[in-house]
């Protein structure tokens, strides 16, 4: 900054000064970036470590296979993790096909006019609506008007609504970022729109769409507010019917109509009890919830890596 790069007398440019200045600038920014990174990571690490220390020793086979109990040392999260798994499956089964289809429709099929502009702005804004609002909507619509009850299906539908905007936006972004050349190659071959989209454009956009799906699912897995609003139970000592059976047709969707609880609710419930033993159980649940989220993200990274490799 203070270094003069142009000689005031001769007007000659001092190249060495320019290089020095540039290097100094880069170094300054690198140091600031590094410090911020360390502070953020250390805070995050301390938080995670704190509840790992509380929670990890509590995790055991029994913790995963016991139902909740009045006695903190016997309480387990069987109904909670099964509930979370089933609710997430229902969410994924609804949100992924609808979200991707809506994204494809908006990007490739919908006419570009003021109406679709308004829809576009609203979809983007919906991603930022507080989740409790979705809970209230679902309570009014699914539970009170449609009388679907406090079931896994309703929880799946609610969370699907919540993450739809994320998946729609990710799908549109992914389609939009596909190079024009790929698009022209597909249409240039005589492909119709359906073929171009499903055979060539969506596969090319898969990494982006997958990222959106995982971001959405990671958000849904930790949501508590809307699930409380639509009335998940806090104490459940039975499991929903199994999705697989050994008689024809081998799959069974009765679980969708079952009451349920999920891990964030179990945590919430335990934290509000006075006994310290329940607080430890809540921390242990948190560790498992966090691991599930990490596992999901890990899976996504792995799949993305596989897609990249196969398309290189």
């Amino acid at each position: 900054m203070s270094t003069e790069t142009v000689n005031p007398v001769t007007g000659k440019i001092d190249e060495q000064a320019l290089v020095t200045k540039a290097n100094r600038q880069d170094l300054r920014f690198a140091i600031i970036g590094f410090v911020v990174l360390v502070v953020v990571m250390a805070t995050l690490f301390a938080l995670v470590l704190d509840f790992m220390i509380d929670g990890v020793p509590r995790i055991s086979g029994e913790f995963l296979t016991n139902y909740p109990s009045r006695r903190p040392e016997q309480a387990g999260i069987l109904s909670a993790w099964v509930g979370t798994t089933l609710v997430m499956s229902a969410t994924a089964m609804l949100a992924i096909p609808i979200g991707v289809a809506a994204g494809v429709y908006l990007e490739e099929y919908a006419p570009k006019n003021w109406l679709t502009d308004i829809i576009e702005i609203n979809v983007t804004n919906l991603a930022g609506v507080p989740s409790i609002i979705y809970g209230l909507l679902a309570l009014g619509l699914f539970v009170q008007i449609f009388r679907l009850g406090q079931t896994i299906l309703v929880a799946g539908m609610t969370l699907a609504l919540l993450i739809l905007p994320i998946i729609i936006v990710a799908t549109r972004e992914a389609l939009r970022s596909i190079p024009l050349e790929t698009r022209e190659a597909a249409f240039g071959l005589g492909a119709d729109k359906w073929q171009a989209v499903w055979m060539y454009l969506l596969p090319a956009g898969r990494p982006g769409i997958l990222t959106g799906v995982i971001v959405g699912m990671s958000r849904a897995i930790g949501e508590t507010a809307p699930i409380i609003t639509i009335g998940a139970l806090t104490f459940i000592a039975f499991l929903p019917p199994a999705p697989l059976q050994d008689t024809f047709p081998f799959v069974n969707f009765d679980w969708l109509n079952s009451p349920y609880t999920v891990m964030p609710i179990q945590m919430f419930n335990w934290i509000s009890r006075p006994q310290a033993g329940f607080h430890v159980a809540a921390a242990a649940t948190g560790v498992i919830l966090l691991s599930m989220t990490l596992l999901m993200n890990g899976l996504a990274i792995y799949i993305r890596y596989r897609i990249r490799r196969s398309s290189r």
Binding site: A185, G188, P203, S311
Partner: peptide, 13 residues
């Protein structure tokens, strides 16, 4: 009518 573009544009397949 088929077309070949200026920049090679194979599909990522």
């Amino acid at each position: 009518i088929g077309m070949v573009f200026q920049k090679p544009n194979p599909f990522p397949k």
